[in-house]
Amino acid sequence: MSVASLNSAAAAAATPVAPSAPRRPGTLRRLLREPVAAFAFAVAVLLVLAAVLAPWLAPTDPYDNNLSSAMAVPGTEGLPLGADSQGRDMVTRMLFGLRVTLVMGLASVLLGGTVGAAIGFIAAFYRRVDGLLMRLMDVLLSFPAILFGLAIAAIFGPGIPAVVLALSVATVPLMARIVRGAALVVMRMDYIEAARATGMGDARLIFRHVAPNCLSPIFVFATLRFGQVILLGSALSFLGLGAQPPVPELGAMAADGRNFLFFAPHIAVLPCVAIFVVVLTFNLLGDALRDALDPRLRI
């Protein structure tokens, strides 16, 4: 993947987590009132910033190896987090690993979420295809993401594109169900009836009136799904089905570190901790976003 595409994709990473996106004012303020939510929001912003600015923040190139410092422990001079098995600076690797992992998760949520949302709107709007579409979604839903990962890696060969495709396919039915449910509620509203009465076309009706009122559940789901997708994607990379070495991806880095676990545990542990922090942050943020956007959903 080119640096330019990484840049734009990483920049876009900020979009689904920005709670200001749904148009109701005050969402952000309500979100930040809870201390845990405010903390998660701050950490999420920092993580996205670190990923976007990785090329400028990182002290070295992520592929620069220096075998004389291989497996250097954290705290070694000039290597605050140590070095990996090839003597690559762990600070750099972690920053770029975060970047690749976040882009992988974002691409999966965007791709799967868009297709899923389209299917959800179509199912809610055209009741004739509703049954068929939703049965298809049930079928997709009955298979675990790991099976898509295995099958797609078998067909196209292991790599980041295979992981993104697998996680997108696994995201489609979930998003479709959520959007269909939300759209069905919105479509019972009087203003939809009124808009229809003005002779508005279907596409315009969906984009102008139905979709904007379904944004809350979409954003909540996308945020929560982002964390899950990263957990799944890094697991696929850990298995060797995703990012291939020497690409810095947190799951692949953990897999590499596993081989040196007893000599230099930091090589495996640091990427694992990073994955945990990212997933936890977005899980907390998703929960908080749900509470802030739709108090009825609070359990």
Partner: peptide, 10 residues
């Protein structure tokens, strides 16, 4: 729910 399985294993 946020811990990678392989992290716990390692």
């Amino acid at each position: 729910g946020s811990v990678p399985v392989f992290f716990l294993g390692l």
